[in-house]
Amino acid sequence: MTYNWDFHSVWQYYDLFLWGLWISLVYTVGSIFFGVIIGFITCAARLSGWKVLDIFARCYQELFRCTPLLVQLLWFYYAFPLLVGGSIDNRLAAMLTLSLYVGAFYAEIFRGGIVSIDKGQREAAAAIGMSPWQSMTRIILPQALKRMLPSFINQSVIQFKNTSLVSVISVADLAYMAAVVNGQTYRPLESYTVMALLYIVMLLPITQAADWIEKRLRVSD
């Protein structure tokens, strides 16, 4: 094969790539931030012992876990405005959808971590007179957080990759910018390879760090 690589003409648009990367990062960090809040509230609702709250939270979780993210983005951007009348900014739709999506998964990670702690721990805390709040914050959560961490990081890595889907509703993230560069240069192989490399450069350190953290946590057990 005698393909003539030409990264030079593609990299002339490096500012577009970097801007796109920045936007991808903003949506990742933003949706993780809001997702943690949503996940925390959802997890609290699931564990509250109130049937209505539990069912409500579960419906939300299943709705967002059992539909593809792409479908959710399309729905929030194109369908939701018709339902309520008016329009929705594509950036808002993207952030909202990404946050709700990851929040549903985070809630399950949080809940799983908490219920995995042996009930003897709660009993021992109760037996020395701790309130449920003290027991949760001083005994259960410190142990549960440790167990949640690997899944949490894993889900967040997936979230970074998932942000590439916002390009379909014209949010100018890295994937969107790669398409723009391709349109300018007619160099799909180079454009999309640069995009892929940028994702790898961002995520490889995180997955490596996650492996290291996981190993360290196991040692101290």
Binding site: G120, A126, I128, G129
Partner: peptide, 17 residues
Amino acid sequence: LRRHVGMVFQHFNLFPH
């Protein structure tokens, strides 16, 4: 009540962290 009445369990239930 629990502040004045201590309990020891079959499976110890020490706080591992």
